[in-house]
Design a binder for these strands. Structure first.
Length: 423
RNA sequence: GGAGAGAUGGCCGAGUGGUCGAAGGCGCACGCCUGCUAAGCGUGUGUACCCCUUAAAAGGGUACCGAGGGUUCGAAUCCCUCUCUCUCCGCCA
């Protein structure tokens, strides 16, 4: 959510920057709603003030033995007017809030302008692209031949876009989770969290999944809860509606969770393999930081995520997303893209964003900069560290051998009982 | 799932219809005093929104005593629903 004061005082600037994301909003309607809300609120509060004042006088009069009857008749009418005003006011308030919640974040001035992935800007790349003296296979071919993935039985048990892992495949997934968690907790200062995987509507609204993206979420009916699409949601909401001490910041959390996404609207994309699943595992990094440090923290977060790939010795690059390709809540996003020899392309394996105040304002996460100061909104950051399923893909495709086996990256062997090769 | 108790400000804790944003204490901030420290004294100490101004503040108003609804001229206080916490019983990974 944006600061309403910014919208009132600098609407032209806001319009322009929101437009750079490709979002279209009816700003004239917004201006009308805002004005209507303020006028109605002021009028209603004037009535309440009068009612409160007269009610107080009735109290005094009764105590001193006077006759309150005339005042009571007078205030009765006002009380009725106040009641009559409640409905329309609530309706205007709702329209106002709904609009506010549908406005995406302002892009940071350094985010490249653009409408789609083509305008993303490569920041750096790491590692040589691997060469094979045989035709490189896709991970699903590798995995099915090794008997570690079973897509058809997963579809039988659940639906398409689910996978059953067996044996070394399941072990590889688990090893990656543990490796990533150990790296981030032991060497990078993140606190490990194991959050709920189902969350309520307020939590989903706090990070910006709701109200706009309900169709992307899985939902339970009774009670109504939503399966998390990323651990960013529960982690960022841990401190919802709290005022933190300055000394508490920055907060660094890391969590492994499964993630659940409807993938509505992605029919036909990545239908084979592990790339786009309804359920996948992810190790997520979340930070709450003071505004003046948040961009420094973003750079460090990207670096922490990249470190996973450096230790796995897998080629990758970092790109800065352009305004049109960023998520709803983000002011600035770096994607890490990993090289997949089987598809001869880079694929996103991590996305690290600074949401600045956007989520903090929705979720009311604040801190006190000093003892006497007013509370300020924290900046929230989130990033994959990394998407585990896609890391499995990267390992299989980059470490595949001519005979169909896959060499286990050295750093993972301690996590896999010393296993050196999946065959 | 059954029975009971509870939810008040940063914390503890009073308050069962009227002037209560809420006593008192603790904590914290500022000032005074004390040639250090401790103690003592005084003042202050929530958040959001609206109005008026604005560089900002001050000022005025509204709301908030778990959440939502109701009764009433008036609700922290009465009624209803819900949520959460605690205790006991049952069940259970």
């Amino acid at each position: 959510m944006l600061d309403i004061k910014l919208l009132r005082e600098n609407l032209e600037l806001v319009k322009e920057r929101i437009a750079s994301r490709g979002a279209k909003l009816d700003w004239e309607r917004f201006v009308a709603i805002d004005r209507e809300r303020r006028e109605a609120l002021a009028e209603w509060e004037r009535l309440k003030e009068k009612k409160n004042r007269i009610s107080g006088e009735i109290g005094k009069l009764k105590k001193s033995g006077g006759d309150p009857a005339p005042l009571m008749r007078e205030v009765e009418e006002i009380a009725q007017a106040v009641r009559d005003g409640e409905g329309p006011l609530a309706e205007i308030e709702k329209r106002f809030q709904d609009f506010m919640l549908m406005i995406p974040n302002l892009p940071h001035p350094t985010a490249p302008l653009g409408s789609g992935p083509e305008q993303n800007r490569e920041v750096r790349s790491w590692g040589e692209l691997p060469r094979f003296d045989f035709p490189a296979k896709n991970h699903w071919e590798i995995g099915e031949e090794l008997g570690i993935f079973d897509f058809s039985r997963a579809a039988k048990i659940a639906a398409s876009r689910f996978t059953v892992y067996y044996g070394a495949g399941a072990l590889l997934e688990r090893a990656l989770i543990n490796f990533m968690l150990d790296l981030h907790t032991r060497e990078r200062g993140y606190r490990e969290v194991l959050p709920p995987f189902l969350v309520n509507r307020d939590t989903m609204t706090g990070t910006g999944q709701l109200p706009k993206f309900e169709e992307d979420l899985f939902r339970t009916v009774d009670p109504e809860l939503f399966l998390i699409p990323t651990a960013e949601v529960p982690l960022t909401n841990i401190h919802r509606e709290e005022i933190l001490d300055r000394d508490d910041l920055p907060i660094h959390y890391v969590a492994y969770t499964p993630c659940f996404r409807r993938e509505a609207g992605s029919y036909g994309q990545d239908v084979r393999g592990l790339i786009r699943q309804h359920q996948f595992n992810k190790v997520e990094l979340v930070k709450l930081a003071e505004p003046q440090n948040s961009y420094e923290e973003l750079e460090k977060m990207v670096n922490d995520a990249e470190e996973v790939l450096r230790r796995l010795k897998i080629s990758h690059r970092v790109v800065e997303l352009c305004t049109g390709d960023m998520g709803f809540a983000s002011a600035k996003t770096y994607d890490i893209e990993v090289w997949l020899p089987g598809q001869a392309t880079y694929r996103e394996i991590s996305s690290c964003s600074n949401c600045e105040e956007f989520q903090a304002r929705r979720a009311q996460i604040r801190y006190r900069p000093d003892k006497k100061g007013k509370p300020l909104f924290v900046h929230t950051l989130n990033g994959s560290g990394l998407a585990v399923g896609r890391t499995v893909v990267a390992v299989l495709e980059n470490y595949q051998q001519k005979d169909g086996s896959v060499v286990v990256p050295e750093v993972l062997r301690p996590y896999m009982g010393g296993l050196e090769r999946i065959m």
